[in-house]
Simulated assay, not measured.
Amino acid sequence: MRFLQTFQLQDFLDTFLSLFTAFVLGTLIGVERQYRQRSAGLRTNVLVAVGAAAFVDLAYHLASADGAVRVIAYVVSGIGFLGAGAIMKEGTNVRGLNTAATLWASAAVGACAGADMVAQSALLTLFVLAGNTLLRPLVNAIDRIPLNAHVSEAHYEVSVTTDPDRAADVRDVLTERLEAASYPVRETKVVHRSDDHVEITATLVSQAADPAELDTVIAELTKDPGVSHATWNVSALE
């Protein structure tokens, strides 16, 4: 039996230490993700870390450092497919990027553990946890800062409401008013809200606009007899 011929207690203990380290550190990352109810929680992060450690450890024992390096390269690219499954796009909103990045970092933790770099994998775990916890107050503080339309690149839309019979004419008026104000239109969308109301939305090419100028355009649009309501909004780019 080949197992009895090749089994070495020292190598087995080395593998055990690598997998145990990946399991413990993956658990630390996974607990934080599970607490925040992320799609990739405790078990996923543990399995990613342990799996990466197992592949790197196996390659290291079969082909030494050169083999481990090649496997690490495949782990880096392969984990991207798993991360892609955690990313969801809902309209203009993208969710799961942080979860995918955490899975990528968990794989790095496991790869370090598999390469017997226990101290480095522990250090990396601390940085991952710090990124997901200590930086949250800073992220929340930045998100609460109002968007400065003068200096920020953003997504601008101007919307008007009219009746279906005048939709074509109002769309032309909307485009003309915006272009006269030096805000060319990238595209327009027509949405039928009801039998009596149609909403026409123009997306601007410009990624920086003067709110006062857009307010002036809105004021001019509301004077048109075919426009019952007009407004504009700005949102951050993806």
Rank of each mutant, 00 (worst) to 15 (best):
N45H: 13
V46T: 08
A101R: 03
L123N: 05
R144I: 06
V139T: 10
L147C: 11
G51M: 07
I87M: 13
G85Q: 09
A149L: 12
A86H: 02
N140G: 00
W104V: 02
V50K: 02
L135P: 02
A115I: 04
T125S: 03
V56I: 15
V158Y: 02
L147P: 09
Y74E: 11
A63T: 00
A63S: 15
A115Y: 14
V139Y: 12
G85P: 09
A115L: 15
A63G: 12
S106Q: 00
L124A: 15
T102R: 01
V128N: 00
L103T: 01
D143R: 14
R136F: 08
N140R: 15
L123V: 11
A154M: 10
R95N: 13
T92G: 05
L97S: 08
F127D: 01
V48A: 03
D116P: 00
Y156N: 01
T92P: 04
A115Q: 05
G83W: 02
A149H: 07
D57L: 01
T102H: 01
G78F: 07
I79H: 06
N93K: 14
I72S: 07
G131H: 09
T133Q: 06
L82I: 13
V50S: 06
I142P: 06
V76W: 02
T44C: 03
L129E: 01
A54W: 13
H61T: 12
L97K: 02
V139Q: 12
F55E: 04
I142M: 15
W104I: 04
H155T: 08
G131N: 11
A101G: 14
V71F: 05
A141G: 02
S64T: 06
A65T: 10
V151D: 06
L62Q: 14
V75P: 04
G131Q: 08
I87G: 08
V139S: 10
S106E: 00
G85R: 13
G80M: 10
G96V: 13
G67F: 07
A68D: 01
G51I: 06
S64K: 15
A130Y: 06
D66R: 13
I145V: 13
R95K: 15
F55Y: 14
Y74D: 12
T92Q: 10
L103C: 01
G114L: 09
G67V: 04
V48T: 04
Y74K: 02
E153G: 05
G51E: 03
L58Y: 14
A130K: 00
Y156E: 03
A84D: 03
A107H: 04
G96D: 07
D143P: 00
V118K: 13
M117F: 12
R136S: 11
T133W: 08
R70W: 09
T102C: 12
T44N: 03
A108L: 06
G80C: 12
P137Q: 11
Q120N: 10
Y156S: 04
T99L: 11
G96R: 09
K89G: 02
A105G: 00
